[in-house]
């Protein structure tokens, strides 16, 4: 008791009370109360308090690790889906493969990057259109079962979840790459053809424009021929004719 209670406390009465009041609670009551308390404790037993910060820290670490992993995967220049497939077998069915399709399959085997069938078909179509060959029955057969483009990725639940998204992105990138390859091939072929045509045209034109022996027999006509060649832009040919003219007519001034 505190000091301010001393005025209300009679030590004689308190001592007499402590000696007289010795009743104890019945054991049956104790059992009932403890049983009820145990039932309530079983219903509300929770994890020890120290597990809460541990669970929070573990969640934080796992979340950060997952974010870092996703960031590293996004920053990688080589997506896992484009890794070469070691020991990959060609996905062609014997007997039903056209020669052009076999070529495409061989090209796909030799390529370090597995190309989707749409891309292979587009490249093959460009090649065949440049050579004028029939594209064959396999051209544009996009409903055909696709080769295992994703076989290089280890099959995990996380990758299985990523597959639809990666497949869509990869198809888009493959289409873009195919279109780029097609445009590059067409442009290169067109340039080559145009260059060869220009060369041939220039050679044919130069032969046509070259001065004839009859013209060379007459100094004035040869001179006119050389001037016409120079005026037409055949400078090299005009120079050759001019040198020949100077050798034939050394006393005359060259045109």
């Amino acid at each position: 008791m505190t000091g301010n209670d001393d005025s209300t406390r009679d030590e004689t009465i308190s001592a007499a009370w402590r000696e007289a009041s010795t009743d104890t609670s019945p054991h049956s009551l104790d059992r009932k109360v403890l049983r009820e308390a145990a039932r309530a404790a079983g219903r509300t037993a929770r994890m020890p308090a120290w597990t809460r910060p541990l669970a929070f820290a573990a969640t934080l670490v796992l979340g950060v690790a997952l974010l870092l992993h996703m960031q590293a995967e996004l920053d990688s220049p080589y997506p896992p889906a484009e890794l070469p497939v070691p020991g990959r077998q060609p996905a062609t069915s014997p007997g039903a493969t056209a020669p052009a399709e076999a070529d495409a399959a061989r090209a796909a085997e030799q390529s370090p990057v597995a190309a989707p069938p749409e891309q292979a078909d587009e490249v093959r179509a460009v090649q065949e259109s440049s050579t004028g060959a029939d594209p064959g029955p396999a051209a544009g057969n996009s409903a055909e079962p696709q080769p295992a483009l994703y076989e290089a990725r280890t099959e995990t639940p996380a990758l299985r979840q990523e597959r639809p998204r990666d497949a869509a992105e990869l198809e888009r990138s493959a289409e873009d790459a195919g279109r780029s390859l097609q445009s590059i091939a067409i442009t290169g072929q067109q340039d080559a053809v145009a260059q060869s045509f220009a060369t041939k045209r220039r050679a044919d034109t130069a032969d046509d424009e070259r001065c004839t022996p009859e013209q060379r027999a007459d100094a004035d006509r040869w001179r006119e021929c050389i001037e016409r060649l120079a005026a037409a832009g055949f400078a090299e040919l005009a120079q050759q004719e001019r040198e020949a003219y100077a050798e034939t007519y050394p006393d005359a001034a060259p045109p």
């Binding site: 009743d23 609670s25 019945p26 009551l29 109360v33 404790a41 079983g42 037993a45 929770r46």
Partner: peptide, 23 residues
């Protein structure tokens, strides 16, 4: 007892107060 369901804590608490409360 309230937060962790510690039954031993309740038994200690009960043993301290059960007889005075009964009286």
């Amino acid at each position: 007892y309230a937060q962790d369901g510690d039954m031993a804590a309740f038994e200690t608490l009960y043993s301290r107060h059960k007889d005075p409360l009964y009286r």
